[in-house]
Design a protein around this nucleic acid. Structure first.
Ligand SMILES: [Mn+2]
Ligand SMILES: [Mn+2]
Ligand SMILES: [Zn+2]
Ligand SMILES: [Zn+2]
Lengths: 144, 144
DNA sequence: CTGTAAACTGAAATTGAATATCAAGAGCAT
DNA sequence: ATGCTCTTGATATTCAATTTCAGTTTACAG
């Protein structure tokens, strides 16, 4: 799983004429070891704590590469922090976001996805991406 | 229509103990005269061009008030610029956004809205707001 | 092995939107 | 008019993100 992803990024790097560097290896390792929707800053701190200093700019740049390679997805929620999550081939989901405790619940809905495509088609629109987020209070927070 | 909206904001201001100022009147006039999804900067420039200098900060503050009063809706698209649009009572819509020409098409879909509520309910979530945007190329741009 | 071109890095500077500060000014009830 | 409180706006500040650019590293041809 992890090896396949490293391989996939390697192939992407090769096809783009990118070079193999210690920094990118480290950032990829740390990213693949995370499981949440992690912000760039969080990832940066995680890397900093366990490795020789890797710069802010490099983390930003590398995560953009991961997204470009199809390994990661950039998520912009309503708090001005860019986050990244793992992309699972053939899978897509959207998010329920609790604005009290910041927890995120993922959901899939085939019907909504289909309706989105119909709406786009009706307007002659070519879909490149979409975002759907539902903001509110999670089951725990709503009764506080 | 415009008079009703001014009245509505006046009532809101009154109930909040806000004062009536020249600046707020001007900003409201200019906002009500617009028809698109206008960014704060655009509105600021529009105001600047036709009126005595009103500060940046005041425009930001006042638009937040409009949103709070229910007159306007804040929209955050994928370009880091906050935009505002008019709220029409009892109406809700989402957006198709062309990432080439920046045009925006509005759409409503009752079925999607209903499905969103069902998803939230299934997860014990209390919805406060939601956003759905479809990004891509509009009918014109997709054939360039 | 070199040598070289091109890519990469990271500290520091910069950007850009948005907010905070705070002294001067204005609205409004009495 | 008086005084209290809200408002304004130039300026400073914040914060994420990007740019800059000199020094470093990689890849690869010879
Ligand atoms: Mn997710
Ligand atoms: Mn709209
Ligand atoms: Zn919560
Ligand atoms: Zn377009």
């Amino acid at each position: 799983m992890i090896l396949e992803k490293k391989k996939a990024f390697n192939d992407f790097a090769l096809s783009k004429g990118l070079r193999s560097t210690r920094q990118r290896d480290v950032i990829l390792d740390v990213f693949l070891s995370t499981h949440q929707h992690i912000s760039v800053e969080e990832l940066y701190l995680k890397i900093k704590s366990s490795n020789t200093g890797i710069g802010h700019a490099t983390v930003y740049r590398t995560l953009k590469l991961f997204a470009e390679s199809g390994l990661a997805r950039e998520i912009l929620l309503h708090d001005g922090q860019t986050r990244y999550e793992h992309v699972i081939a053939g899978e897509h989901h959207d998010h329920l976001v609790c604005t009290k405790c910041n927890s995120i619940v993922e959901f899939e809905d085939e019907t909504i996805e289909k309706l989105q495509k119909e709406i786009a088609a009706r307007h002659g629109f070519l879909i490149k991406s979409h975002k759907m987020e539902i903001y509110g209070y999670c089951a725990v927070c709503k009764q506080l």
